[in-house]
Design a protein around this nucleic acid. Sequence first.
DNA 1: AATTTATGTCAACATAGCTGACATATTCGA
DNA 2: TCGAATATGTCAGCTATGTTGACATAAATT
Lengths: 177, 177
Amino acid sequence: MSRAGAIKPESDHILDRPMGDTDGIDFEIIELLFFAYRDFISDPDAILDTSGFGRAHHRVVHFVNREPGLTVAALLDTLKITKQSLARVLKQLIDSGYIAQVAGPEDRRQRRLFPTERGRELALALARPQSCRIANAMEGLGEDGRTAVKAFLSGMINPATRGAADDREDTIEGHKQ
Amino acid sequence: MSRAGAIKPESDHILDRPMGDTDGIDFEIIELLFFAYRDFISDPDAILDTSGFGRAHHRVVHFVNREPGLTVAALLDTLKITKQSLARVLKQLIDSGYIAQVAGPEDRRQRRLFPTERGRELALALARPQSCRIANAMEGLGEDGRTAVKAFLSGMINPATRGAADDREDTIEGHKQ
DNA sequence: AATTTATGTCAACATAGCTGACATATTCGA
DNA sequence: TCGAATATGTCAGCTATGTTGACATAAATT
């Protein structure tokens, strides 16, 4: 091992003061979000390890179960990934019998995605520990506290995405089903 | 293209009902967390694309700036990744002059990590848009609402991690610096 | 002096994203 | 009706970031 560079501590303008609440930046909540999400994701990850699937599969199974019959295009839009990226995990989920494709009733080019019973079970199994973790974290909060949390999370989301759930009903821009 | 399987819609027990609030699971907040974090991360991602760095670099720069002088072991513990994984990005950050290593004053085996001015600037630049997004999402909330949000996020974190920040001061278990 | 610890490094591998190019089936518009 | 646009699939290759296993070195500890 060479260890080059470890010899001269006083070159190169080293800073030894912690990056605190300078510039009015709240680093604490930035870190809270990082750790919270990391642990939030770790629950389903543990289950997925057993099944041989990954996070990518989790997301697909989740949204297909939340909105059965959604098109591939709509799913791509929700996940914000490329179709090549989706193709890999989707194929595995279909081949394993978690998701089924059906040609669109109006537009037969579409492949509408539906969960099988097996897929539904998986989605529920993955959501359950996350729901528990959330319920646990909500425990101390009152009704208004919970409302605040939801409002906060909602406010963190880009406007374009924020209305996505509504697009399932009425479709104004793009991707009409 | 073969399109096998798209032909028979009625086989395989397809479910067409959305996975709603069955089992008392709050899917809405699960999705809020997913979208919130995705967009929260997208801000620094855009900046990093310019610098040729990725999310992994972001995390390292962040925590080194938050706690200058932390050891490699402590950083590994925070990030929960392997040293081989860290080595790649850390080397790049050191070679590019964002982070400097200094041999530990007491234990000279340690390589304590410090930000350079350049590293500090990067960390701040990455934190700024995230802070803005948070401030924006907090806007409507009162003081108690903000407290609720922090309590919620804190409650989402695994106990082991939750006290990590305190370990910086007094060190009880493992990794004493 | 022997062992443990903190760190670095090499090699190989997996997952999950990306781009670019091209194929096929279907729908739509002139 | 024909050509263009659309929805989807697929091949090939690349990148980023994680993993495991094995081994090296310097310093501390016993």
